[in-house]
Write a protein that binds this DNA or RNA. Structure first.
Length: 271
RNA sequence: AAAAUCUGGAAU
């Protein structure tokens, strides 16, 4: 909990206190702290804790190592992440669905899409075929470089394999199409997801409205906003920011004032 | 669940 609030120091203190009063931290406790330290870039400390665990007779498991892998990937140190995964394997620990999606994300962030695909295939070869997060991560990688053809191919591929796309899959693809200026295909995906029984959420609408706003289609943006409200999807701070951007672009100052007023009525603080 | 994926602006 403390780690999630970026209070690593407090977490570390609490951890020391625990030991002083004679409590033995469990593998989970260690893993939580190791994850927090890794995200904070404190890899030496994290490694030290791994050793400490072993000294206490505790066996670090896949989650423990994956915590450090996450830290490396987030700061672009993918090679070290891969090396750690190899170490894990040597110690008889098999990477799981989390490990794979994290590694794929790390490679995508570095622009190493081909390598990421290799890891994805390796994951499938290991028999993990229902990891929607890994597929979403991979699809996002291609979307971010504007390669919508491959992204779409992956969507079709996972459908064939019986791994059901979720709302996030569609949100990622909608954003991809919007960012290359192809709002038409983005709109088609919105219909497509509903056909598959998935409910668009605020992020879906925000993403598409932003795309429409970027190509200057304010009218479509407004009708989408109406649809969003009608269907009871709550507007959030992102929604307002996107709408305000659109209104500024076309100089509708009066509408902007209205929006800010409505925002406060709906108890959303302008950020 | 002790760990993974989606949207704006500003800042850097």
């Amino acid at each position: 909990g403390l780690c999630r609030q970026n209070k690593i120091a407090e977490a570390t203190n609490l951890f020391s206190e625990m030991k002083e009063i004679g409590l033995f931290p469990s593998v989970r406790t260690y893993s939580a702290l190791i994850h927090g330290l890794s995200l904070d870039g404190q890899f030496e400390m994290a490694t030290k804790l791994i050793h400490q665990m072993c000294d206490c007779g505790l066996r670090p498991n896949v989650v423990t190592y994956t915590g450090i892998v996450t830290g490396f990937c987030k700061v672009g140190r993918v090679e070290e992440a891969k090396k750690l995964v190899d170490t894990m394997k040597e110690r008889g620990l098999h990477p799981n669905e989390f490990t794979y999606s994290i590694l794929i994300d790390g490679l995508c962030l570095k622009g190493r899409l081909e390598d990421a695909v290799c890891v994805l295939r390796q994951m499938e070869d290991e028999g993990i075929i229902n990891n929607i997060v890994a597929y979403n991560t991979m699809i996002r990688g291609f979307c971010k470089v504007g390669d919508m053809e491959v992204a779409d191919k992956l969507l079709k591929e996972i459908c064939c394999k019986g791994c059901m796309p979720d709302v996030i899959t569609y949100n990622i693809l909608i954003d991809g199409y919007c960012k290359v200026g192809n709002c038409n295909d983005a709109k088609k995906l919105l219909c497509g997801m509903e056909k598959h029984g998935l409910k668009p959420n605020a992020i879906t609408y925000n993403t598409l409205m932003d795309g429409l706003c970027r190509i200057g289609d304010i009218e479509s943006m407004v009708s989408l906003l109406e649809e969003m409200v009608q269907r009871g999807v709550r507007l959030d701070a992102f929604t307002y920011s996107i709408l305000l951007g659109g209104m500024c672009r076309v100089g509708r100052l009066h509408d902007i004032k209205n929006l800010i007023h409505r925002m406060q009525e709906n108890e959303i603080e302008p950020d």
